[in-house]
Each structure stands twice: as structure tokens, then as C-alpha cells.
Design a protein around this nucleic acid. Structure first.
Lengths: 211, 211
DNA sequence: ACATTAAGTCACCAACTGGTGACGTGTCAA
DNA sequence: TTGACACGTCACCAGTTGGTGACTTAATGT
């Protein structure tokens, strides 16, 4: 026994980089962004932290690389649904209500996205910038599928939708720690059914052209 | 010169406690809750950190004591305005629109409150609990001044208002770091005038009884 | 005048953070 | 076979965090 076997670890750069990227995701969804650091990621990935510097340059670049991975932001299709034509048959208000309902559901089933959404309110960093850009592009793309028919309403469509989106973000982020907001349940499907119905009513009554 | 004069610091327990409490507020509004720690508060107050343990017991208790101080949450009067009767002459929708507009303005001019509002989405602690309780009681009290006249609307008044409040919180918290939300300015008076007008439209069209 | 108590100072601790330099060792080409 | 290089390990650094024990010194009551 000469002891102290270095265990000949896989020696595979690509695999190691992936382990690190997965580590970021694992920590974000399990412990939250507050615990995300060089040491934690390295440990989670079972890799020496010096490799983060060697392969990525540092934490910001690692986050940037992580931001390139897909899936943490809902696709437009996820909100539009399988059959876009079906959505188009609805009124402007109903269309947006369905879209925003699906949007909220899509956020709710993405722990990492929820985490970054929360992070965005506390700090500015690579990942948050990426998420923000992705969201803004996504929103523009979405608008193309939800044409702003001038005849359909005289209200400020975009601002109204963004206000509702803000509320959705607030409730989604809050749901990580709290069960309700002054009585509005934000951590159950039933609670969100109710929120969806409130949004539906608001949009139906706000987006009308006959005035 | 025998040097090393201990400078005979004021030696006043009450004053020292107050310096510590002020230190909490100063750090919250200048650096944010992320920098709020035993060491930081002690340094800000120009006091040894051991006194925090001696006088309060620890950080949670210090935060609790800070939470008892007044002013960081808007009073009902600040939202109702000087003349309650004037508000009562308005329709349900207009009344709430004015109230929520004043509410947003009250939050915007309170850096510490904004900070705790942000904190609330990230962590649970003494101070956040206190703010939450204060907010919920405040909301109930406010509802008493904004009677839910059953005849005035068939919509879910409370849920709708809370949704708007959620959006307001989101924008207020976001404004600490970002200037806008997909184009909606959240850091200028003009931006908030616009948000207020959007809220007004939504409420006016949602809270109607003639259906 | 003197002892007791309370206010404040100081030095230290362990744990953790991000970051780096020096060291092995497997792989592959010349 | 023998280098050179890339992959990975390890030990260490300085700085910061929360937390504590032992000390000095001022105010107070008898």
C-alpha cells in the first residue's frame, strides 16, 4: 500500500465543464442564489474550484455560460399553446388572459427561473442581465403573436399587460417563501386559478372598444 | 505622554441603544439589507459589537426593536388624505385609484421600507414578519375606510386591489436597481404618473355594477 | 472612602469567502 | 522512449463574518 490514491478523476474537460454548469442549476434550485458561490458550485460539482477559473475565468463568466443553456425561460410556444389559431379566435382580452395564465404556470414550474426572477430584484449580474434580455426579446416576440389590434381597445394595452406581469412576478417570487399575500394564496393551484380569474375579469373589462 | 487614551466614550446606555437602532436604518437605506450584519451595524453606530449582544441579545432582537420604531410604514392617513370626506364623494374605483396612487408614492419616498419590501421576497426574519403583520393590519384598517359597498361592483374587490398592490410592490422594489420594466419607467415621477393612470383605467372599468 | 455594578474596550476564536501558486499525473505526438 | 501539455489535486493566502471572555473605567449607593 503506497496509499493516497488520487483516484484518477475522469480527466475530461468537457464533462467537467458540464458538471460545473449543472452545479449552478442544482444550487439555484435547491439552496437559492444566496448560496451560489465559487466554493459551493465546486463542491456541488465535485470538482476543484480552481477549474472554474481555468475553464470559465470566474463566476461572472460561469453564470454567463449558464445563461446560454436553454429551458430556464419559457418558450413563446409554451404560452401560445399548440394551436395558435385557436387562440386567435378569442377576443383580445381572452387571448391575453389565457396567455398570461399559461405564462404564470410556466414560471411556477421552473424553480431556477423563479430564483433568478427574485435575484433580479436584489442584484445586478451576468445572469440577471441575460434573463432580462431574454425576457424583453421574448415579450416583443410574444406581442407579434398577440397583435395590438387598434380597433380592439382604446386602453393602453402594453402597460396594462406589463402591470399584470409585474403582479405575477411578485406573486411567483413571493411563493418561494410565503404561502399567501394578505389572504391571496400564491402557492397552490387553486390559489392561482383564482388569480387567473381575477386577471381575466380585469382584462375583459379593460379591453373594450365600445365606449 | 502616556498615550492610548480610551476617550471616555459617552457611557450612556440609552443613547448607545439608539445609536445602534439608527445604525440599522442607516445601513438599510444606504447599503441595503445585504450589508446588514453585526459588524456593519456596530461600525456604523461607532460602538463595539459586543454591546449589541448585551443590550439586545443579538441581531434578531435588534431587528425586532428596530421594527417597533415608527415611520417606516405609511399611516392610513397618508393614503386617506387630509379630508376623508372628499375621498368618500368619489366612486369606488376613483377612491381606490387615488388611494393606491398615494400608497405607491408613500412607499417610493421610504428607502428603508423599499428595502424591507425587497428583503421580504428573499428571506424570512424578525423584521420582515413585523413589516408583514403591520401591512396586513394596515390593510384591514384601510378597508374600513374604503367600504366594500356590495352594490358598487360585482367584481372581486379585494383580490383585484391586492393584485394591483402586488404590481406596485414589484415596481417599487425593482426601481432600486432598474430604471424600467420592459419600457415602463419605474424610477421617475412621470413613469409613476403613467402607472397611476393605467391603474385608474383598470379600476374604473373593473368596478362597475351596471352589468 | 470604598465596594459594587454597569458601560465600554480589546483581543481573540472558528468558520467561511474568493483567489492563487506549486505540484502531480495521465495522454498524445514527435 | 521521451518530452510537452492539459487535467486535476492540494495547500495556502488574506479578508470577512458572527460570537465570546477578560479586561478597564466611570457612576452609584452606603
Amino acid at each position: 500500500m503506497t496509499g493516497a490514491r488520487p483516484q484518477t478523476a475522469t480527466r475530461d474537460k468537457k464533462a467537467t465543464k458540464e458538471r460545473l454548469l449543472n452545479g449552478v442549476g442544482a444550487i439555484l434550485s435547491r439552496q437559492g442564489f444566496g448560496s451560489l458561490g465559487i466554493n459551493a458550485v465546486a463542491q456541488e460539482a465535485g470538482v476543484d474550484k480552481v477549474l472554474i477559473y481555468r475553464y470559465f475565468g470566474g463566476m461572472p463568466e460561469l453564470l454567463h455560460a449558464f445563461g446560454q443553456s436553454s429551458g430556464f425561460w419559457p418558450s413563446v410556444a409554451e404560452v401560445i399553446g399548440e394551436d395558435p389559431h385557436e387562440l386567435m379566435r378569442l377576443s383580445l382580452a381572452d387571448r391575453w388572459a389565457v396567455g398570461l395564465s399559461r405564462y404564470a404556470a410556466a414560471l411556477r414550474r421552473r424553480p431556477i427561473t423563479k430564483e433568478i426572477l427574485a435575484w433580479e430584484q436584489i442584484e445586478r449580474n451576468e445572469l440577471c442581465e441575460i434573463l432580462r434580455d431574454a425576457r424583453e426579446k421574448w415579450f416583443v416576440e410574444l406581442m407579434a403573436h398577440f397583435p395590438d389590434d387598434e380597433a380592439a381597445t382604446d386602453a393602453d394595452l402594453i402597460s396594462t399587460v406589463l402591470l399584470v406581469v409585474g403582479a405575477i412576478h411578485y406573486f411567483v417570487v413571493l411563493s418561494r417563501l410565503q404561502g399567501d399575500f394578505s389572504g391571496v394564496a400564491v402557492d397552490t393551484d387553486e390559489g392561482w386559478d383564482h388569480i387567473d380569474s381575477v386577471i381575466l375579469t380585469i382584462l375583459q373589462r379593460t379591453f373594450t372598444a365600445d365606449r
